[in-house]
Amino acid sequence: MPKWGELIDLSPVAALVNIVDVLLVWFVFYQLIKVIKGTKAVQLLKGIFVIILVSVLTDVFGLDTIGFLMGEVLQWGFLAIIIIFQPELRRALEQLGRGRIFARTNVQENEERERLMTALTKSVSYMAKRRIGALISIEKETGLSEYIETGIPLHADITSELLINIFIPNTPLHDGAVILQKKQIAAAGCYLPLSESSFISKELGTRHRAAIGLSEVTDAITVIVSEETGAVSITAAGDLDRNLSMEEFETRLRKVWFGSEPEQVEHSIWKWGKKNG
């Protein structure tokens, strides 16, 4: 920053340097946020933000006592952070030395995606072969809290074994939908809205109609395993893809869950008619 009385350099080169400087700072902050996302450091940042906000308010309203306390907290807080988060800071420095500090998040995300895909694929394959009916909905951007509240809360890690056990016939939770939220099984035995479309084939049961109904009002993905035939289907963005092989199922699920938007080659009405014809 120029000192008082100094002229500000307004040349194009200086402007470009300043723009690059700001962009680099924002890039570093963005990557750091990605690194700490999903860790306990996020809660720490929230606490620091609250303390800074309180400090600003004490200055505005002239609250000297609270301002003094906040000043002490800020003064000694950084030392406390270094002590409390010493293991995390050490790992970050080690990764920085290996040149992997910013790549770590992408690696972890890819590993988590593969774990989730493996769990879903394994459980669906098992249930399809044994004709165990299943209805699994995956929350995306639109919240599914109102439907989660209709079921039994679980908040468990997503594993193929747990998904299979939930849908075993005559067990307490097998009737209804399982909803996956933020890499967890949020609830089981949930009720989904039934579609009232007159274009849905009469041969489709309640599970398919509920899956289509949810896709009509949210951006959720729903996986259906037919109890009668063992056929595997996926609904997303109002479209129903039926009778998928396991290879087709995995490809389609990966695309609508982690990839781009579903292809809108044909409207779902025509797809139902052609596949039922």
Rank of each mutant, 00 (worst) to 15 (best):
207 R>F: 08
244 L>S: 03
215 S>N: 08
206 T>G: 06
199 F>C: 04
267 H>N: 15
194 L>Y: 14
57 L>P: 00
66 I>R: 07
128 A>N: 04
19 I>M: 03
69 L>C: 10
80 A>T: 14
276 N>H: 13
65 T>I: 15
236 A>W: 03
244 L>W: 06
47 G>W: 14
254 R>H: 08
246 M>A: 01
178 V>F: 10
11 S>Y: 02
169 P>D: 06
2 P>T: 01
114 E>T: 05
249 F>T: 00
194 L>S: 11
258 F>Q: 07
7 L>C: 04
107 V>T: 13
265 V>A: 04
268 S>T: 12
240 L>T: 01
151 G>S: 03
213 G>F: 12
120 L>F: 12
92 A>S: 12
164 I>E: 10
26 W>F: 14
176 G>Q: 05
3 K>L: 12
142 T>L: 07
135 L>Y: 06
118 T>W: 09
131 R>V: 00
156 A>C: 03
12 P>D: 00
220 A>H: 02
272 W>P: 00
225 V>L: 03
52 I>Q: 09
55 S>T: 12
7 L>D: 02
50 V>S: 10
157 D>L: 12
80 A>P: 04
153 P>T: 03
110 N>Y: 10
54 V>L: 14
101 I>Y: 11
237 A>T: 05
27 F>T: 07
47 G>L: 13
2 P>C: 00
16 L>C: 01
159 T>I: 07
32 L>R: 03
42 V>N: 07
148 I>L: 09
27 F>N: 06
128 A>K: 04
116 L>F: 13
1 M>I: 05
172 P>G: 04
150 T>W: 06
168 I>M: 14
212 I>D: 05
202 K>R: 12
152 I>K: 11
105 T>G: 05
63 L>Q: 12
265 V>Y: 10
62 G>H: 14
107 V>R: 15
183 K>I: 02
